[in-house]
Amino acid sequence: MRVIKSDDGITTIDQDEVIVQKAAGIDLATIQIDGLRPNLDVLAGLYQKAYASKLPEDAAAYVKHKARILAWFQRRDVDRKRYETGEE
């Protein structure tokens, strides 16, 4: 897993294809991540857990949290808004 912020200010997460592929076929709506803090430390922990366990459910939790983190980066980097409130 690699997190990069490009020169134009866009943050991407890549080199996680193995985990993303393991999550294929899992309904992300059934995965609960509500209690997890939206930060990269948690995302890295989910990645490591999914990589070690090789369980599709763990991979799906990583994928769902990754989408949450990328949405947060979108609001911060592109929309110039704060995380939860949406305020500028």
Rank of each mutant, 00 (worst) to 15 (best):
I33Q: 06
R80S: 13
K64T: 04
A59Y: 00
D77P: 04
Y83D: 14
A67Q: 15
V20S: 06
A50T: 03
K49R: 15
R80N: 14
P38I: 08
Q15L: 10
Q21K: 14
D7K: 13
I33S: 06
S6W: 06
A29L: 01
R68C: 11
A52D: 12
Q15F: 08
Q21V: 05
K49I: 09
F73I: 03
A60E: 01
L46I: 03
G25F: 03
T85K: 08
L28H: 02
P56D: 10
K66W: 04
D34R: 10
A23M: 04
D58G: 04
V78N: 10
A61V: 05
L55E: 14
V18F: 08
L28F: 03
N39Q: 05
K5N: 10
Q21T: 09
L70A: 07
Y83H: 07
K66D: 05
P56Q: 10
I10P: 04
L43I: 03
T11V: 13
I33E: 07
A44P: 00
T12W: 02
K81E: 15
W72I: 15
R2F: 06
D79Q: 12
L28A: 03
K54G: 01
I26W: 02
Q48K: 03
D7S: 14
N39R: 05
Y83A: 15
V63D: 04
A23G: 04
A71I: 08
T11A: 11
D27Y: 02
Y47I: 05
P56M: 05
L55G: 00
V78H: 08
V3L: 13
A59E: 06
G86Q: 11
G35F: 09
L55A: 11
D58V: 08
V42I: 14
R68P: 01
E87V: 10
D34K: 10
T11L: 07
R82D: 14
Y62I: 14
D7F: 06
V20L: 13
R37W: 01
E87Q: 12
P38W: 03
I10T: 15
A60V: 01
F73W: 09
A52L: 12
L43G: 02
Q48C: 03
D27V: 01
A29D: 03
G9W: 08
R2C: 03
Y83W: 12
A29T: 00
T85G: 06
L43T: 02
E87M: 10
L40F: 02
R82I: 11
I13H: 05
K5G: 00
R75I: 00
I4T: 14
I69M: 15
Q32F: 03
I33N: 13
A29V: 00
I19A: 05
L46W: 01
A24Y: 02
A59P: 06
I69C: 09
K81A: 10
A67T: 12
Y47R: 09
D16T: 07
S53H: 07
P38R: 11
I4P: 00
K54Y: 02
D34W: 03
R80F: 08
A59N: 06
G45E: 06
T85N: 12
Y62G: 14
V63C: 10
T30Q: 13
T85A: 09
T12P: 00
L55Y: 01
G25T: 12
K22L: 15
R75H: 03
A71T: 13
T85Q: 07
D7N: 12
Q21I: 05
D8I: 15
Q48N: 10
A52N: 07
R75N: 12
I26P: 02
D7H: 08
